[in-house]
C-alpha cells in the first residue's frame, strides 16, 4: 500500500497556499509536515482528507486492499476540534463513531472499552464528554482513531494541548498503527517522538493565485 501525492497545490480565497507538493509514503511509514504558522500545513491535510478541493495535482492510495475512489474514505482525520458531543457520554460518542465509520477492509478497529484503555483513561468513559478536562478530551478524540480501522491517519497538531506523558502515549499509538501497516501523516510544531519518519517542510505562502481575472 502506498500513498502517492503528485503536484498538489491549493488556494484559500485568492491566496495560493502551497504549490507542487509531491511525496510518497509506503505502508508502515509516517510523514511529518513541518513549517511555521500559516505555512499551509492544515490546508495540505484537509486537501488530503478531501475536505478542500485541490487546485491541481492528485493524491491517491495505490495497491490498497480495497480500491478507493476518494482518498478520504480510507482516512481518519483528527483536526483541531475533537468532533465529540459535549452532551453525550464518552461511551456514546465513541460507539456512535465506531458504528458510523465502519471498518475499512483489511483490518478491524478495537472496541470502545479497549480504545479508552489504550489512551489511558479507562474508567471515566461513562461521563459526559463535556465534564472532561481539555487534555482528557483530546485523548478521547484520539481513541476515536482506534475504534474503526482506517489505513491512513491524518493528524493536525495532534498533541497541541497535551503533556509529555500523553505525547509519549500518542507516539506509542502511532507506532502501533504503523506496525499494523498503516500510514500516518501529521502536522506538528513539536517533535512527536517518532523515529524513522519522513519529513516535509512547508515554506508558506506561495504567492497570490494566478486567477483568471
Amino acid at each position: 500500500m502506498r500513498l502517492v501525492a503528485e503536484g498538489l497545490s491549493a488556494t484559500r480565497g485568492e491566496d495560493l497556499i502551497f504549490q507542487d507538493i509531491s511525496f510518497e509514503i509506503a505502508g508502515g511509514e509516517a510523514l511529518v509536515v513541518k513549517g511555521p504558522n500559516g505555512s499551509g500545513k492544515s490546508t495540505l491535510l484537509r486537501v488530503l482528507a478531501g475536505l478542500l478541493p485541490a487546485e491541481s495535482g492528485t493524491a491517491k492510495l495505490l495497491a490498497a486492499p480495497h480500491p478507493v475512489e476518494r482518498l478520504g474514505e480510507a482516512c481518519h482525520y483528527l483536526g483541531h476540534r475533537n468532533a465529540m458531543k459535549r452532551e453525550l457520554t464518552v461511551d456514546e460518542n465513541l460507539a456512535f463513531w465506531k458504528d458510523f465509520f465502519g471498518d475499512f477492509p483489511g483490518d478491524a478497529g478495537v472496541d470502545v472499552d479497549e480504545a479508552v484503555e489504550s489512551v489511558g483513561l479507562g474508567g471515566i468513559a461513562h461521563l459526559p464528554f463535556g465534564y472532561l478536562s481539555a487534555g482528557q478530551q483530546r485523548r478521547m478524540a484520539m481513541a476515536k482513531l482506534l475504534v474503526a480501522w482506517r489505513p491512513v491517519w491524518i493528524l493536525d497538531e495532534p498533541t497541541a494541548a497535551l503533556d509529555v506523558a500523553a505525547e509519549t502515549m500518542f507516539a506509542g499509538l502511532v507506532m502501533a498503527h504503523l506496525g499494523r501497516g498503516g500510514i500516518a501523516i501529521a502536522a506538528t510544531h513539536q517533535p512527536l517522538g517518532l523515529d524513522g519518519v519522513k519529513e516535509l517542510r512547508m515554506t508558506g505562502f506561495a504567492g497570490v493565485a494566478e486567477t483568471v481575472w
Binding site: 475536505l51 475512489e69 483536526g79 483541531h80 475533537n82 468532533a83 463513531w97
Partner: peptide, 13 residues
C-alpha cells in the same frame, strides 16, 4: 460544524 463533526461526516461516502 462547530465541533468538527461535520468534517468527519463529509469524509464518509
Amino acid at each position: 460544524r462547530e465541533d468538527g463533526s461535520l468534517d468527519l461526516l463529509l469524509m464518509q461516502e
